[in-house]
Amino acid sequence: MAVVWQRQMGGTCYQVRRHGASVRLYSNGIFHSQWNPRDPLKGSLWELLLLPAFFLPPRKIRSVLVLGVGGGAVIRLLQQFVEPECIVGVDLDAVHLSVARRYFGVRGAELVCADAREYVAGSLAATKQNSYDLIVDDLFGHNEREAERTVAADLDWCKSLLQLLAPDGLVVSNFGSRREMITSGWRRTGLREQLANWSAEMPQYENCVLTVSRRPLAMTDLVTRAPGAINPQNPRRRLKCRLRRL
């Protein structure tokens, strides 16, 4: 694997590495993003963030908010397989956004360098409620070479995301573990009963991805629409994951 770009800024060492057609972003050795334009569905964690989009009908997802861009793998996947009209990506790290443009080829999306909490609060103050059909909450940083969430998914955070979500929309939230998901605001009594909840996990990662919606979400819809490489009913799928209704 070749290092094609590297920069040291403060206490962070950024690297972009290539392996064949794949490009990868690392920060202090933490693997943040991967994109392969020739073969985008390879069974990666970022495809687990894409999969819930297929609960909804084609063209239903017109506007997307991605909180935590990294190298932009999720944005590239959404553009190729969902084709929303508008994607806004928010990341506190300007280097990540530069890498997303230069090495991951992110185009046609609005990339904003901002604190996600401030961006969400500002959007609500600007009366942008019900603005997004899909919100991807993938806010991870690193602490001593360990990836961890940078914004706690407490009850206030979850309610704020719901205010930005269209009535039929989805929030897809990445957690470092199932325990972290279960103790989040999404699972608090009084909120969880109002929402459809699905969790997804992969055997090679501790991460747990939660999907919530105000509307019922049917597995039959997802397996009808999802591409074969990530379709849970395809025995030859590349994305090996466990989906559970909560």
Rank of each mutant, 00 (worst) to 15 (best):
A73F: 00
S33F: 01
T211E: 07
V16N: 04
T189M: 10
L67V: 03
L92D: 04
R149H: 08
R18W: 09
R24A: 12
V112S: 01
R215A: 14
L124K: 02
I182K: 13
A94D: 13
V171M: 02
R214H: 13
R192W: 03
F104L: 04
F55I: 10
L97P: 01
L155S: 14
K128E: 15
D138W: 08
L164E: 01
P84Q: 09
L165C: 00
R187I: 09
P227C: 06
L50H: 03
Q233I: 10
R62P: 00
T150W: 04
V171Q: 02
L246R: 09
N36E: 06
L48T: 08
L124S: 01
R237H: 04
E110W: 07
K42N: 03
M181A: 15
G122V: 14
A226S: 04
V99M: 11
F55Y: 11
I230T: 01
N36P: 02
R242L: 11
R237F: 02
R117E: 11
A2T: 10
D91S: 02
P232R: 05
K240I: 14
R187A: 07
Y14T: 07
V106D: 01
A53W: 02
D91V: 00
T211Q: 08
R59H: 12
L111V: 06
A196M: 07
E146A: 12
L217A: 02
E201M: 12
R179H: 13
G68K: 08
F140I: 07
Y205Q: 06
P232M: 06
L243W: 03
L246D: 10
F175L: 05
T189F: 11
A94V: 10
I30M: 12
L51Y: 00
F140D: 04
Y119W: 15
L162C: 07
V82P: 00
T12W: 06
W46M: 00
L170W: 01
K240F: 08
Y119A: 02
A126V: 11
V223S: 11
W46P: 01
G68T: 05
H19M: 14
N143E: 14
A121D: 13
G72N: 03
D154W: 03
N36K: 08
S199V: 12
H96S: 14
R236V: 06
F54M: 02
G185N: 05
A116L: 03
R236G: 08
L97D: 05
A100R: 06
D39F: 13
L41P: 04
D168F: 06
I75C: 06
L48Y: 04
R215W: 06
S123Y: 11
A114M: 05
A109M: 01
M181V: 12
W186L: 15
P235Y: 12
N231W: 09
A153H: 05
W186R: 11
V120F: 03
N207R: 06
P216H: 11
N28G: 06
Q204I: 07
R244K: 14
A121K: 05
E83P: 00
L111Y: 08
L77N: 09
P40V: 07
V112F: 03
